[in-house]
C-alpha cells in the first residue's frame, strides 16, 4: 500500500488539489434552486350573454376560460422572471410581440413586474360566425409591484379593463391581442 500512496504522489498532488478546488467551486456554484414557475391559476369568470353574432358552445366557453387563465398565469410568470419563452404557450400575434418587447426591455433595465392576480370578470362580445375569432372585455383585479433589482419602486392595486382578442390553435385558444382600455377611448 505504501507504494500506492507513493505513486499517487507521483501522479501529482498539485493536479489533484486543483481538481479538488475546481470541484469545490462547482459545488458552490450559484445554481442551488431553479426558479419555479408559479402554478397557481387566476380565477376567470366568463359571461357570454351578450355575445354576437354566434352563440358560444359550452365546451368552447370552458376552453376559452381555461386558456385565458393560463395566459395570465404565464404573463405574470414571464413579467416577474423576465423570461419571454414563458409566453410561447398562450400568446401569439400582436399581444406576444408587445409583451416580448417589454420583457426584452425588462432584461436590459433589470426592472421586474410582479402581478398578484385577484381574478378576471370577462364578458364575451364578439364570436365570428366561422369560429375563428373571439373578442372579450376583461375587468381584471390586479396588484402590481415593480422592482428595480431588489428594490420595490412602485406598488398599486388596480382594476384594469382589457380588450382581448383570442383565436383558436390546434388544441387551445391563444391571446392574439391584449390591450388596456382607457375610460375615454
Amino acid at each position: 500500500m505504501t507504494l500506492i500512496a507513493a505513486d499517487f504522489g507521483k501522479l501529482g498532488r498539485s493536479t489533484l488539489m486543483s481538481v479538488a478546488s475546481m470541484l469545490a467551486l462547482a459545488i458552490l456554484a450559484p445554481v442551488l434552486v431553479a426558479a419555479l414557475r408559479a402554478d397557481s391559476i387566476p380565477a376567470v369568470k366568463l359571461n357570454a350573454d351578450q355575445i354576437a353574432p354566434r352563440a358560444i358552445e359550452e365546451l368552447t366557453g370552458r376552453n376559452v376560460t381555461r386558456d385565458y387563465a393560463y395566459a395570465w398565469r404565464d404573463l405574470a410568470a414571464a413579467s416577474e422572471s423576465a423570461r419571454a419563452d414563458l409566453l410561447n404557450d398562450y400568446f401569439t400575434g400582436f399581444a406576444k410581440d408587445k409583451l416580448v418587447r417589454r420583457i426584452a426591455d425588462q432584461q436590459k433595465t433589470g426592472v421586474r413586474i410582479r402581478y398578484i392576480d385577484h381574478g378576471h370578470n370577462v364578458r364575451a362580445l364578439f364570436y365570428a360566425p366561422d369560429g375563428g375569432e373571439m373578442q372579450l372585455v376583461d375587468n381584471a383585479q390586479l396588484e402590481i409591484e415593480i422592482r428595480d433589482g431588489s428594490k420595490i419602486i412602485y406598488r398599486e392595486k388596480v382594476n384594469q379593463q382589457y380588450l382581448v382578442l383570442m383565436t383558436p390553435g390546434a388544441d387551445r385558444w391563444f391571446v392574439r391581442s391584449l390591450d388596456q382600455l382607457a375610460d375615454h377611448p
Partner: peptide, 25 residues
C-alpha cells in the same frame, strides 16, 4: 450535492491523509 461531495471527499482524503508505510501486507 452528495454524490459529487463523496468524490471530493475521497480526493481530499487521498491528498490529506497519506498512506503510512507498512512493513508488509
Amino acid at each position: 450535492i452528495l454524490p459529487m461531495a463523496s468524490s471530493v471527499v475521497a480526493i481530499l482524503f487521498l491528498i490529506l491523509l497519506p498512506d503510512r508505510r507498512l512493513a508488509r501486507i
